[in-house]
Design a binder for these strands. Structure first.
Length: 502
RNA sequence: UCCCCGAUAGCUCAAUUGGUAGAGCGAGCGGCUGUUAACCGCUAGGUUGUAGGUUCGAGUCCUACUCGGGGAGCCA
């Protein structure tokens, strides 16, 4: 009697007869042998069917199964180096739940528009499967970090009567005739809860109507926001440092296989340990004006230029070989794919060559007082091999609730955490302004009507204490951990400017 | 809001200075006893994003629009 099991558990069943249920990922066959690659959600397994007099009909059925046909397979488990994952199933019997015709996503290359339009099917593919498994663990690691430290989970509302931060980027909704907004942060609410529970966090989706079409932006993304009472800026930064180390190490521990499948350089993640680098905003400005930044830009530019040259040469050579007389068909196809990959890389390199001089100019002419741009963050992060905390930004570039520094009133007790390798800002946080009068002054400067914030001001009236917290964007963090080029692959169904289907 | 790039078969792409729209994959059929995005042969598959314009002739040049990709600003 065959035992039902899953592909992940096959090593425990070598020599036994088991039943697997799943979907046909790919298949190959010859006159007497068929290889069915079965996908069951836990992994891939090669199922081998040999044609005999007794199973001629079954063999014929198996050969004609379309990609993603749903199947239940009985067979004997055998270790074999030639098979994906090292184990295979010698098929005894096979039941077809549905024979599929015309599955749109073939094992060959597709463009992003096509794949995003078929996102509901795309995430059956290996890479997407790996990413979403890592996401699941990342979310678990986040929850565990706070739960293990006695933080209380507070779910904050998604319908908000007023802006949490910048008012220009709110999605509006009709609420029985009133205009309300989709939350862009849970932070103000979490501050109220912090006064009741001391250490709290919220974790949920947030919405930003930013008209940004870039590889770093979603209109709906997940954010975790801890908030702690009786804490100053250093306490908050230390918490953030421990937090990032722990979630990265947890993913590294549980998902080496997935990260390797994604082509991630694991050394870079193993290097994510305490202490991270810290610099003030003013230090960052000096860095941008200095030789190190300029040299980094120059070496990046030189590298991009030589890459462009090298790729162009490579493409020409491969193109010549591809179109030459007598090149084998499979070789032609392989070359075509390599050429396509090289062209994509070439486009990126050419873009760098165009942009770097502009970025150099931005950095060299950067004026104290404005917020760091994407290219500024990139060069700062790329000059360091671990994440960098940039602290004490000028008041004008940050939110009204951040605490004014007592020694230098021009700046705030706040920080951003920049991820390495150019992944940009993954955390923004601060000590909060606990003085009612200064807070009111800040709101006046920002032209904020106090009426919708009366409840928030009450927190300063009744038992105010030094406190602080931060917000971490899950998708940007995941993109960094997985080494992904684009944030759209980090969330099951990406919501971005110009994309709402499926 | 602004700048750059793109749209050709179901998919990924070719098509020389403007001159008969092709290939691979996928699909269908046949072959092959260990394949690894298998391979080999045959078949079907097209109003070149939309609307105008230039021209003897437009996939190719021009204009507008639509959709998509990347970036700036803004941000996690």
């Amino acid at each position: 009697m065959a035992t039902a099991t899953t592909i992940a558990k096959l090593p425990k069943h070598v020599g036994q007869t088991v039943t697997l249920s799943g979907w046909l990922y790919n298949s190959r066959s010859s006159g007497k042998l068929a290889f069915l690659i079965l996908r069951d959600g836990t992994g891939l397994c090669q199922c081998v069917l040999e044609k005999t007099d007794a199973n001629a009909e079954l063999f014929q059925t198996a050969k004609r199964l379309g990609q993603e046909s749903s199947l239940v397979v009985d067979g004997q488990v055998r270790a074999d180096e030639r098979a994906v994952g090292g184990y295979e199933l010698i098929v005894g019997d096979l039941r077809v739940v549905q024979n599929v015709e015309g599955y749109p996503i073939s094992p060959k290359a597709h463009g992003t528009e096509f794949l995003m339009n078929h996102r509901h099917l795309w995430f059956r593919s290996k890479r997407q499967w790996a990413i979403l498994r890592v996401r699941s663990t990342l979310v678990d690691a986040i929850r565990r970090f706070y739960n293990d430290r006695d933080f209380v989970l507070i779910d904050t509302p998604i319908f908000a009567p007023s802006a949490g931060e910048g008012a220009q980027t709110l999605f509006e909704a009709d609420y029985f005739g009133d205009t309300v907004y989709l939350a862009q942060t849970g932070q103000l609410y979490v501050e109220a809860a912090m006064m009741a529970h001391r250490k709290v966090y919220c974790f949920g989706p947030t919405f930003r109507a930013e008209k940004s079409k870039t590889r770093r932006h979603l209109t709906e993304f997940w954010m975790v926001e801890p908030e702690i009472a009786y804490a100053d800026l250093d306490d908050v930064i230390e918490l953030a440092e421990d937090f990032v180390c722990e979630i990265v190490q947890r993913v590294l521990r549980d998902h080496r296989a997935e990260l390797e499948l994604l082509g991630r350089d694991l050394n870079k993640l193993e290097n994510i340990t305490k202490p991270f680098y810290r610099m003030t905003y003013s230090d960052a400005v000096d860095l941008l004006h200095g030789d190190r930044a300029r040299e980094k830009f120059e070496s990046d530019l030189a590298a991009a230029k030589s890459r462009v040259e090298q790729l162009s040469k490579e493409i020409n050579e491969k193109e010549a070989e591809r179109t030459a007389q007598g090149t084998k068909k499979w070789k032609v196809e392989k070359l075509a794919q390599e050429i396509a990959d090289a062209r994509e890389e070439l486009t990126d390199a050419e873009e760098l060559v165009r942009n770097i001089p502009h970025h150099m100019e931005l950095a060299a002419n950067f004026e104290w007082g404005s917020d760091l741009g994407g290219s500024d963050e990139t060069v700062i992060a790329r000059l360091h091999d671990r994440p960098v905390f940039v602290t004490h930004y000028p008041a004008a570039c940050k939110a009204f609730y951040m605490k004014r520094n007592l020694n230098d009133p021009r700046v705030l007790d706040c920080f951003d955490l920049l991820a390495p390798e150019g992944y940009g800002e993954i955390i923004g946080g601060s000590q909060r302004e606990d003085d009612l009068d200064i807070l009111l002054e800040r709101m006046k400067e920002e032209n904020l009507d106090t009426a919708p914030y009366e409840w928030y001001l009450d927190l300063r009236r009744y038992g105010t204490v030094p406190h602080g917290g931060y917000g971490l964007g899950v998708e940007r963090t995941l993109a960094w951990i997985c080494g992904l080029k684009h944030i759209r692959e980090t969330i099951p169904f990406a919501r971005m400017m110009g994309r709402i289907y499926p």
